[in-house]
Design a protein around this nucleic acid. Structure first.
Lengths: 145, 145
DNA sequence: ATGTTTGCAAATCCTTTGCATCAGC
DNA sequence: GCTGATGCAAAGGATTTGCAAACAT
């Protein structure tokens, strides 16, 4: 079963309706599997010339809906704006340099210890889907005071 | 030396000018030592009837300036909006429940291991001033499936 | 058939900008 | 006096909303 079908299956189990617009947004997110802004999603859909483009408010509504269903993560990437991404198999996070802007991928296991500690000490179940950690990359940290 | 004087000292060492407006914003942030939105700062200043209120753009500019000087942190607290806070002695972070909205304070030491690991494995110097971690508090996690 | 979702347009909110005036050093 | 900060008004951009028409189930 394709990833798209899996998502649709989950949606149907929740009793959610599948519309053309929702299908297009999910497919756009799956196409790159990278994080996309609302605008990225919009452009990706418009490039498929055969389909009519969606109204922007609709994209906002669909992304919000997917986020509430915990199928999509929402992350503020500072200069890059707010990005959305399917919560899938390749969960990862980002180290963002405040000086040069470079973004370094880090594995989700980075948070294993912290998650465990939060659960043990505070009974808190952290939902860290796609985190951006700001700071200074090795190049910028060394060249600066 | 008061906390305010310490901050002013740092600013003067940077060659920054101290204006009435900047003083008012810093005092507002120090008054509660809690995180405040731009609006919170504005209202706090307006309540001191003896002083003229600041133009909103000025507050934005001053907070941005303090943030660049690493004296103030900026955090997106989801429903509560973007909040600012003096980076001071009592550094802490927040666990925010996605269900009931409760905010639990956690000590900065939570990130000690992660910071050390990021430095060692990626040469990355994380600047985690005031982080919000989303998830589910113990009450909401147990009552839900 | 019924209840939901979409499209459109407009409103709203937050934040930024340009420029003349004012103030700190 | 020089340089940079502020106030005002206006622009800008992203996101949300109301409502009628279209659609999924």
């Amino acid at each position: 079963m394709s990833e798209y079908d899996q998502i649709v299956k989950i949606l149907r189990q929740h009793g959610e309706r599948i519309t053309i617009q929702r299908r297009l947004v999910i497919e756009a997110l799956l196409a790159t599997h990278a994080h996309m802004t609302v605008n990225d999603v919009n452009e990706h859909i418009q490039e498929k010339k055969d389909v009519h483009s969606l109204a922007e408010p609709t994209i906002y509504r669909i992304l919000q809906w997917l986020k509430e269903l915990e199928l999509v993560s929402q992350t503020d990437m500072a200069e890059s704006g707010i990005v959305y991404q399917i919560i899938g198999a390749h969960k990862h996070h980002h180290l963002v340099c405040l000086n040069c802007g470079v973004s370094i991928d880090v594995a989700d296991t980075l948070f294993d210890d912290m998650r465990e500690r939060l659960a043990r000490e505070h009974g808190f179940h952290a939902r860290i889907d796609h985190m951006a950690i700001y700071g200074y990359c090795s190049d910028c940290a060394s060249e600066d005071s």
